[in-house]
Computed example of a mutant assay.
Amino acid sequence: MPTFFDAWHFDGKSAVRRKVEVQTVGNQFYLAELERRHGPFAFADLEYAGEQGDASVYKLGGNDGWRLGLVGNVPTELVPHLPAKKTYGGWIDRLGIGPASAVFAIVSAAVVAVVLFSPQWLAPLIPASVETKIGDALIGDFGGRFCSTPKGKAALAKLTNALDADPRDLQVEVANIDMINAVALPGRKVILFNGLVSQAKSPDEVAGVLAHEIGHVREKHVMQGMLRQMGLAVVLGGFDGNGGSTLNGLLSTTYTRESEREADDHSLKALKSASVSPIATADFFRRLSAMDGSAQMREGKERAMASYTSSHPLSDERRKLFENSVIKGKAYRPILSSDEWTELKTMCAQDRKVKSGWGFDFE
């Protein structure tokens, strides 16, 4: 025996909302409108389309504009014929929001873990030729900012050769940028900024920093960092606002601090092999610690929090590391002569062709 229900309907052909009566006949139904009747339609072809006001809305497969709205509580006798409501879709509705959230959290943690740790074994698999092409594409000649004079380049080469067992694949440059920093970049490239060289008190200070950056190259930190950042950008792309950016930064800096410590260890070993005293590098970090305030920080929570949120170990911690590595009674020697140091330190000032200015931003 047929049953009847009031509803509203869009036929998919016009924008007219029609008041209709639903007439059910077994697994089919008709829509009656005044003296017209539409159908039959199969309940099996209906799909749940969501809520609109106080109505449960259904669409008809194969007809994009077709809609049927049942206002209020769906009649009990009609429920078995209608498709189930889908609040979140697919497997989430089948599991429930609680279990689905747990599954999502576990999968997300696993993906982030893969992104964080896979670069350590993936980076060494990247061919040197590919890394070189990446470096050349990203850096080129650094916008014409690489300084070059014959004696200055010779002093830089002597410095590099003393700090690395086989420096033939390294490209070490001084960039005419007034910034106290140095960076290791793809393609086994190391760039010392002229601000660092000109402010250094001795070539031994520059040696400690250069050996640190070479450590990043030799430990494959550069490609690991690139792969990790690319992976985090993809994985965390779904986070909106500052949340994803903050999380991305915290995850990446955790790795960066580890890399910095490994590079410091490499620097100490290189200085020891070259018979260069680490005290000069310790003095360099002493001056930096006065600038960044780490020398004045109290022990305990304040210092721990600063170290946790910094992308590098605190300058004062690094000062202690190099200071404590001095071997008493060891016969250290300067890595460059006085004349060689002067040529390196004034190379950018002597190079009349080099461009000046920033052009590139590094942290």
Rank of each mutant, 00 (worst) to 15 (best):
V172G: 11
D339C: 07
G359D: 10
K189T: 12
T132W: 07
E205N: 01
L70I: 15
V354G: 03
A7H: 01
D339W: 03
G152P: 03
G231M: 13
C348H: 04
A290K: 14
G215D: 02
T254H: 11
S118I: 08
L95R: 09
E131M: 02
S118G: 02
A295W: 10
N27L: 08
S202K: 00
P150C: 10
D292M: 06
R17V: 07
E33N: 07
F284P: 02
S310C: 01
F362D: 10
R145L: 03
V107L: 14
V235I: 10
V25R: 12
S307R: 13
G359H: 08
K355Y: 07
K158W: 00
V354F: 05
A42Y: 02
D169S: 15
I139L: 15
A155C: 00
A44D: 14
G241R: 04
R257V: 03
E343Q: 13
G26T: 06
K330T: 11
L159K: 04
T256H: 02
G96K: 06
F104S: 13
S108F: 15
L34N: 13
S118H: 04
F5D: 15
Q23F: 00
T256I: 00
G72Y: 09
D141P: 00
D361R: 11
K220L: 00
G152D: 06
F360E: 10
E35K: 06
G61P: 01
E302Q: 11
V115H: 09
L82A: 09
P127F: 11
G357K: 07
V197I: 08
H312N: 07
T76V: 09
A7L: 04
N63P: 00
N73Q: 10
A102P: 00
D6H: 12
N27M: 01
R287A: 12
I191L: 14
A154N: 06
F285Y: 12
T246W: 11
S325A: 15
L210D: 10
A157M: 01
N181I: 05
E131N: 03
M291T: 13
V57F: 05
A200N: 02
D45W: 03
G39Y: 08
E258C: 00
P127S: 13
A42I: 01
L232D: 01
L314A: 08
A270F: 08
A32M: 06
G89I: 08
A105D: 06
D141G: 02
P99H: 00
K85W: 01
L247C: 02
H9Y: 15
H221F: 03
R319A: 09
S267D: 03
I327P: 00
F239M: 12
L46H: 07
V326R: 04
S294E: 11
N176T: 09
F193G: 06
T87L: 11
R298V: 07
L156I: 08
L210R: 01
M226H: 06
E77C: 09
V326T: 03
E213M: 02
F360L: 13
L196Y: 00
R261W: 11
G231D: 12
G90L: 07
S356D: 12
V276R: 09
V183D: 14
G98E: 09
I134W: 05
S245E: 14
A128E: 15
V190E: 08
H221S: 02
D178T: 08
K272I: 08
P119T: 14
A270L: 12
V20H: 04
V115S: 09
F4H: 14
I126Y: 03
S275H: 13
Q171A: 13
Q199S: 15
D204S: 11
